[in-house]
């Protein structure tokens, strides 16, 4: 690397005897590495850069949304109309869509994920369990746009032709399952999110379940509990803070997820009771409208939506990490 830094070293004589200048540079470099502070300073600079980037991120979100915050105030969060043309901008339809789809996602993903985690941690032979967990980890690595692709071309037609009509027939007395069926809509958004967050619930829950000491399981079995009773009555409660953590983590993922939901939610910023109706989420409106936004207020309002999303996910992530940490630190004993 020394030669690279000095390509024009003046008097190159032979490899065995580097020129004085070259040698002194190498020596200097060696001396530099021989100090304690070089590694310290370099790595500290990088660490400080992370601080700077994150600060810049928060600062940008805050200042760039100033216009919108000044104009709409707190009313932005509860405004029900989104009409960029007249600059009536309220975030409620997007917040509604985000929350509803995330709730649907959790309602499906939590039982499914927890069930699968229990199977992998408690019942499957260790070898099979780690292979299945490997497959499920890969599921978490599938890019979101691919879920969207499958959502548009596979799931939405299936919902339109099979699932939605069936729901309407059986549960149609509920306002949730009334109205015209499009295929795209809140239900489709929630479903695709559910499939996307399941791997997170499984892999975190499986790990906290595996960390439960064996004597808890045996304690219950020794009292004549069946395998399921020991799992559900002793092992799962022991790991419950960690499991809550995995759910919060999944929720944070669901809230911030963009591409898949943009592709199937229908993108109509209205609040409707029916889950069949198209809706919109914060992330989806950003993906759809940011590039087309023209007026400063419009852009600023979109960035404020980004700020809202940022705050939501940060709070949830923080809670999730605290819970998971509490489980691992206290060996799982909840308060």
């Amino acid at each position: 690397m020394a030669t690279a830094a000095h390509p024009a070293a003046p008097q190159v004589r032979s490899h065995a005897h580097p020129p004085g200048f070259f040698r002194s540079f190498r020596n200097r470099l060696r001396k530099l590495i021989g100090t304690d502070w070089l590694g310290y300073v370099l790595s500290l600079v990088a660490a400080v850069l992370i601080l700077a980037i994150t600060t810049a991120l928060v600062w940008q979100l805050w200042t760039q949304s100033a216009l919108s915050r000044a104009k709409f105030g707190w009313g932005f969060l509860v405004g029900r109309t989104w009409s960029p043309l007249f600059e009536h901008l309220g975030a409620l339809p997007f917040i509604y869509g985000t929350v509803v789809t995330s709730v649907i996602a959790l309602l499906i993903a939590v039982p499914l994920g927890l069930g699968a985690a229990i199977f992998l941690a408690e019942l499957a032979p260790p070898r099979a369990s780690s292979w299945l967990a490997f497959l499920i980890d890969l599921l978490a690595a599938v890019p979101s746009v691919i879920y969207g692709l499958l959502g548009i071309f596979v799931m939405v037609p299936f919902l339109r032709q099979v699932v939605d009509p069936a729901l309407k027939r059986t549960l149609g007395f509920l306002p949730l399952f009334q109205g015209p069926i499009y295929g795209v809509g809140l239900l489709a958004g929630g479903l695709v999110l559910a499939i996307m967050v399941v791997p997170f619930i499984i892999s975190v829950s499986r790990e906290v379940l595996l960390a439960v000491p064996r004597d808890q399981r045996e304690g219950a079995l020794a009292l004549g509990a069946t395998r399921w009773e020991a799992t559900w009555g002793a092992v799962v409660p022991f790991a419950r803070t960690g499991i809550y953590g995995s759910i919060f983590l999944a929720l944070a993922r669901a809230l911030g997820e963009t591409m898949a939901i943009t592709m199937v939610i229908g993108n109509d910023p209205k609040i409707r009771a029916s889950l069949f109706a198209p809706g919109a989420s914060i992330a989806a409106v950003l993906a759809n409208e940011f590039v087309e936004a023209t007026t400063p207020t419009y852009i600023s309002a979109l960035i404020e939506l980004g700020l809202v999303l940022f705050c939501l996910t940060i709070v949830l992530n923080g809670l999730a990490r605290l819970l998971i940490l509490a489980t691992s630190r206290r060996g799982g004993a909840p308060a």
Binding site: A283, N317, G318
Partner: peptide, 18 residues
Amino acid sequence: DLLSGVPSIVIGIFAYAM
């Protein structure tokens, strides 16, 4: 940790602004 929790679309806004 905070940075890893930021939704990717928000990172997009940040890069847009920066």
